[in-house]
Design a protein around this nucleic acid. Sequence first.
DNA 1: ACATAATATTGCTAATTAGTAATATTGTCA
DNA 2: TGACAATATTACTAATTAGCAATATTATGT
Lengths: 112, 112
Amino acid sequence: MAKVLLNQDQLQAVAKLFELLAEPSRLDILQNLKKKPLSVGQIVDATNAKQSNISKQLGILHDAGLLKRERQGNLIFYSIADPMIFDLCALVCGKLRKDAQSQLAIVQSLAK
Amino acid sequence: MAKVLLNQDQLQAVAKLFELLAEPSRLDILQNLKKKPLSVGQIVDATNAKQSNISKQLGILHDAGLLKRERQGNLIFYSIADPMIFDLCALVCGKLRKDAQSQLAIVQSLAK
DNA sequence: ACATAATATTGCTAATTAGTAATATTGTCA
DNA sequence: TGACAATATTACTAATTAGCAATATTATGT
């Protein structure tokens, strides 16, 4: 079990992946794609963002390898390339929920 | 098991946490704090960043609740508030490693 | 070929922020 | 108290980027 720290390049790679998930509009796209692949138009309808921005964010996620792209006639369907990202999001959601509960407990104890 | 999607506020909260981890200098601080608490000066020495920037990033991580702070005389020691972040980083590192291995396999098969 | 629908791209603006040098604050010790 | 060491803050610059309107591209059906 080595105790070696990540070097600068590795840190940058990790940071870059987190950066992709650090944008609400991209997270929204990802959570909408969780169940099944969707076309660009369906994603635009599901979120409340403009088509041009959705297209841009889809491009970013695709270039980074987080999404797969498949043309079907006139439509282009995007899908999750690596479900691991949902594990990441689940961890974060779990932490936020736990923190919120701790806060609630504190507030409740003060209100007694 | 509800299938409800996160709303805008929740997405923003998740994004904000990812944002904290989306910076190499902050990741470097966190990985150095993994073993044990360190003073600001020790962190400056361990990384190769300026004192003012380390102090700034420590403040950001502390304000966000990811780090705890404790004064000991002249020194201020920072420590990890929630080890969960290492689970996050481990997931990301695992993915990057797996992706790199896939790439390697492709290159090797082409080189035959 | 043409009209139309779906998606991508371009050019732009406004906002955010990492990093830095300089300076301020806070605590220790003599 | 004064000098010094550790940390924080301030003011600034340069770089990045989300969102948008307008336009370009690509595919379909007639």
